[in-house]
Simulated scan of single mutants.
Amino acid sequence: MSTAITTPATRRIASVTLALVLLVGAVGPAAATADSGPDNDPVLFVHGFFDTHDTPWWDLAEHRLVERGYDPGNVHVLDLGSIPGTTVHSPEDYAQVVCDRVQEIAAETGSEVDIVAHSMGGLDSRYCVEKLGGNVHVDDLITLGTPHQGTYAAYLAYLTPGGYDMVPGSDFLTDLNDGTLAKGVEYTAIWSDSDEIINPDEYAKLPADSMDSVAEARNINRHWELHLQLAWDEDVFEVWYQYLD
């Protein structure tokens, strides 16, 4: 009888494989309860590493906001690339794309923009508002499973610019986590201690030493959702939706 040997490395590989399978899989429809809808800012969704704006969870998130009363023209998904697996550049590079799009939306609507970002998309968005001046156009920044303090799973993509920058202690993360967040931006970081991609799980929390630098910043632990579930799960939507104001 043979015995399977499981190591931390093989477990991480299995987790990433599972995430990639989910990435190309279909997400079933979820019911959303319509209400009067908030008189809120336009929303920009920012996808993460390996993901694209075409994956089904972004259509689902947009649909839920529209059912709550949002104008479809005020819900946007950032396009960082159309081929899954190719969106692997540095979050510092993507941050400029985020800022450009936020500025366009703000100019079109005359309103500040709320950002909802998944995974590395949260790093793109933070760099935009904290280092590139994007905070003047952004009201709320909500991150879902973002490796704010890095993830050791990034070693599996170490040869890509994005993977390199997400390794804990990277120059990018050291620069980003300088103890201050962006003035005028309300931060909500949703994380899960079941997230198989963020290792250790608590690295998806905003650093504690930066939380007091802004008026409102919070870390919310969902406990049981996996990494991609944070992007499409209806219960997670209900949590972050209440912070769009």
Rank of each mutant, 00 (worst) to 15 (best):
M120H: 01
R126E: 08
V102I: 08
E130V: 12
R101D: 09
V129M: 08
I115R: 07
I115L: 08
S119K: 13
D100I: 00
M120R: 08
Y127E: 10
C99G: 00
Q103K: 15
C99Y: 07
G122M: 05
G134W: 00
A117T: 10
V138Q: 05
V113W: 08
R126P: 09
A117L: 10
L123S: 01
H118V: 13
S111V: 13
Y127R: 11
V136S: 14
L123G: 02
L132E: 12
E104H: 10
G122L: 10
V113T: 04
I105H: 03
I115E: 01
N135V: 00
D139Q: 12
H137N: 14
V113G: 05
G134A: 04
G133P: 05
H137D: 13
C128I: 10
D139F: 04
V129I: 14
A117Y: 07
I115Y: 02
V129G: 10
I105Y: 03
S119P: 03
H118Q: 11
G121A: 11
C128K: 01
V102N: 02
E108D: 14
G121N: 12
S119C: 06
E104Q: 13
R126H: 12
G121Y: 15
D139E: 15
S119N: 11
E108P: 02
S111K: 15
M120P: 02
A107F: 00
Q103L: 00
V102H: 07
S119R: 13
L123K: 07
G133H: 03
T109V: 09
V129P: 12
D139A: 10
C128G: 03
G122R: 01
C128D: 07
G121Q: 06
M120I: 13
V129W: 02
E112N: 15
E130I: 06
D114H: 14
D124N: 14
G133D: 00
D100C: 00
T109W: 07
A106R: 05
A117P: 06
G110I: 11
V136G: 07
S119I: 06
D124H: 12
K131L: 07
G133L: 03
T109N: 07
S119Y: 14
G110N: 09
E104K: 02
M120V: 13
S125P: 09
E112T: 15
E112G: 09
G122Y: 03
L123R: 04
G122D: 06
V102G: 03
V136M: 06
R101L: 04
S111L: 15
V129H: 11
S111R: 15
D139R: 14
G122Q: 05
V138E: 06
H118E: 07
E108L: 05
I115N: 06
V138F: 11
D100N: 09
V116Q: 05
V129Y: 10
R126D: 07
D114V: 00
V129E: 08
S111N: 13
D139I: 03
S119W: 09
S125F: 12
Y127F: 15
G122K: 06
G122N: 02
G121T: 11
R101Q: 14
E112F: 07
S125G: 03
D124V: 12
C99T: 01
G122F: 05
E130R: 10
A117F: 14
E108N: 12
A107H: 07
S111A: 15
H118P: 08
D100Q: 08
V138T: 08
N135S: 12
H118L: 11
R126F: 04
S119M: 08
V113I: 14
H137P: 13
D100K: 09
D100F: 00
I115W: 01
G134T: 01
I115M: 02
N135H: 12
Y127M: 13
E130D: 14
